[in-house]
Design a binder for these strands. Structure first.
Length: 573
RNA sequence: CGGGACGUGGCGCAGGCUGGUAGCGCACCUGCUUUGGGAGCAGGGGGUCGCCGGUUCAAAUCCGGCCGUCCCGACCA
């Protein structure tokens, strides 16, 4: 049987299916171009898309797979409002988030459009869950989220309004959370496998969700906004926001007894400095100045590394880059000659890698640097993981060089713990009669992103190549011949026979469309099999079949053609 | 939010410097021909040139402001 039969078969004539010959001017991402050209979606405004009938079929198939796998782990489907009273969000401190759409009702009551539903789920849990006997629970919905994104982009990959499958687990204790978390993780793995998408499970930052830990499901694609570091040998994989590695150590030579100043006229960047000193970038320490609520912070990484903002934020909290005037005031020098030695009133945080070796740093005097600077001896600093992993650095687990690759985030899972239940009073009485906070988890999938990722991973110059499970149709049947012709009669019968065998068929029975146009549009849409029925091969056959992936031509005998097509369909990815 | 680009029939674009009654391709309508890879010929319909203001006898074109969309950097299904 088809993976997710849903919409039934269609005759194409009279349907809304507007395809475009040219790529839209404002589309860049492959999935964006193809979704618009193939008549799946139309843009209303930045980050807002209308899903057309053909696109909706794809989403429905993804959703059906998600729904089956949610049912399979015992999660229960509900639907929550999109419009929320603001005070629920105030209770968890997330009301001021920039992504929140805010509005008032006619009575002046502050409301928000839901960007996610942790608060609402927890609010209900606080009322419906009384006893440890009521736990565990998993509740989920397939519903719209609204986010005032700073920058919608790449078509359906980053939008302001989208449907999310979001589920929430409620448990008595952390062991229960671990079970719910694992159940969701395994369900997600099945979902993405069934959708025919290549993916990696990676460790991730908890971000705005907060909580105890998180993972993301990442689909490799050049169009991706995230980057993961992955070990080809063991199973280590993490978002670069979190990834660690063993850096490649330079040869430090002997450590000088004390820092030695030297003139570096006009030197500003690590590259210039490295050329000037004839030492590799790894022998230098890079100074990055940010401003936090608690004042200026100097972040130090080795010259070949970049400070990763999320990592720095975990250490020092929210921050912004310092202005040049501020830097002059604190350091007495311009950016380019900054360093940690002899600093007063500036907190210094160094990457772990600086604990070994001695380094060239700025001397906090314009045009002067120090060589032989040693952490702990010449300056004091906390060490932390601040740097972004570089490709080729060793996996901390097994030593194999890591690979970095761009990815699309298609799903995520969070161990929330008690952050929301504590804030909203969602507790239960345990077996001893003690009040406990519910331990929560939250789990999201964006079906439209799954579809977009499938296109990013499956396309050629002619158009989309859908994985069979989420293609809009299983078979694209192209009739070449007028109504009443022998070809039309045969195509009508084949349409019925294929449909009876559980295949969903798009029957291109349009009368005023040229054969060439039908072929081109079929390849643009990208269903797994295209069958052509025309007088060229009738009445004796064979049927011409094109396998979309690779555009390979096959011939199928007329007798038992429907069964043969079903077999061929079953063999597709 | 910082930086860049672009807004001209449904779609893709030209015109703009050098102001003078808006053009091309596709799509659409009618007719004939055509019917296996986005058909041919003929005829036809459709645009306050993003908006507001300014300069000018005259503005798609020059100037100013605003709005919108996309791309690059800081944020997330």
């Amino acid at each position: 049987m088809p993976a997710a039969p849903l919409g039934g078969s269609w005759r194409l004539s009279g349907r809304l299916w507007p395809t475009l010959r040219d790529p839209p001017a404002d589309a860049e991402a492959v999935s964006h171009v193809l979704m618009v050209r193939a008549g799946l979606v139309r843009q209303l405004a930045a980050g807002l898309y209308t899903v057309l009938p053909m696109g909706l079929r794809v989403l429905r198939r993804v959703e059906a797979i998600v729904r089956q796998e949610m049912e399979a782990i015992g999660a229960q489907e509900i639907v929550m409002p999109l419009l929320h009273p603001a005070e629920i969000w105030e209770a968890t401190g997330r009301y001021p988030l920039d992504e929140q759409f805010r509005l008032e009702d006619r009575g002046g009551r502050a409301m928000v459009l839901g960007m996610t539903h942790e608060e609402i789920i927890t609010w209900h849990a606080a009322r419906e869950i009384q006893s440890y006997r009521d736990l565990p629970q998993s509740w989920w919905q397939m519903h719209t989220k609204l986010r005032d994104e700073p920058r919608p982009k790449s078509g359906m990959l980053r939008v302001r309004e989208f449907v999310m499958k979001d589920s929430y687990s409620l448990d008595r204790d952390e062991a229960g959370l671990e079970r719910s978390y694992a159940a969701h993780s395994e369900a997600y793995a099945r979902i993405f496998d069934r959708c025919g998408i290549a993916w990696h499970l990676v460790e991730s930052d908890v971000g705005m969700m907060g909580g105890l830990g998180a993972h993301e499901f990442m689909a490799p694609s050049p169009a991706g906004e995230d980057v993961i570091a992955r070990c080809p040998a063991c199973d280590y994989a993490a978002n670069v926001e979190l990834a660690t590695s063993v850096p490649i150590e330079p040869d430090f030579g002997a450590t000088p007894a004390e820092p030695e100043p030297f003139d570096t006229p006009g030197i500003g960047t690590i590259a210039e400095l490295s050329a000037f000193t004839d030492l590799p970038p790894a022998r230098h320490a890079k100074s990055v100045v940010v401003v936090t609520d608690g004042g200026p912070v100097l972040a130090l990484v080795r010259g070949e590394h970049q400070v990763h903002d999320t990592k720095l934020a975990r250490e020092v909290g929210p921050h912004r880059p310092a202005h040049e005037e501020e830097i002059r005031g604190w350091f007495g020098a311009d950016p380019g000659s900054l360093g940690p030695v002899g600093l007063d009133g500036v907190r210094v945080v160094a990457d772990h890698s600086l604990a070994i070796g001695h380094y060239v740093t700025g001397a906090n005097r314009d045009g002067v640097h120090l060589r032989g600077v040693v952490l702990g001896r010449d300056f004091a600093a906390a060490t932390a993981d601040l740097r972004e992993v570089l490709p080729g650095e060793a996996c901390a687990g097994c030593g194999t060089p890591l690979v970095l690759e761009p990815v699309i985030e298609i799903g995520n899972i969070f161990k929330l713990g008690t952050r929301y239940s504590a804030a909203l009073g969602a507790g239960y009485l345990d077996a001893d009669g003690h009040e406990q906070d519910i331990i929560m988890g939250s789990y999201g999938i964006g079906p439209a992103r799954v579809a977009a990722a499938a296109i990013e991973q499956g396309h050629d110059e002619a158009g989309i190549i859908w994985p069979r499970a989420i293609a809009p149709f299983d078979v694209h049947l192209v009739l070449i011949g007028a109504p009443g012709s022998e070809a039309a009669g045969y195509a009508d019968r084949l349409y019925d026979e294929l449909s009876e065998r559980g295949l969903e068929v798009l029957y291109d029975d349009r009368v005023h469309t040229k054969p060439g146009e039908k072929f081109v549009e079929a390849e643009l849409l990208g269903c797994p099999l295209r069958v052509t029925v025309g007088k060229r091969t009738l009445p004796h056959g064979p049927l011409e079949v094109q396998v979309r992936r690779g555009r390979e031509q096959r011939e199928i005998a007329l007798g038992a053609a429907a069964n043969a097509l079903r077999e061929l369909w079953s063999s597709q990815a």
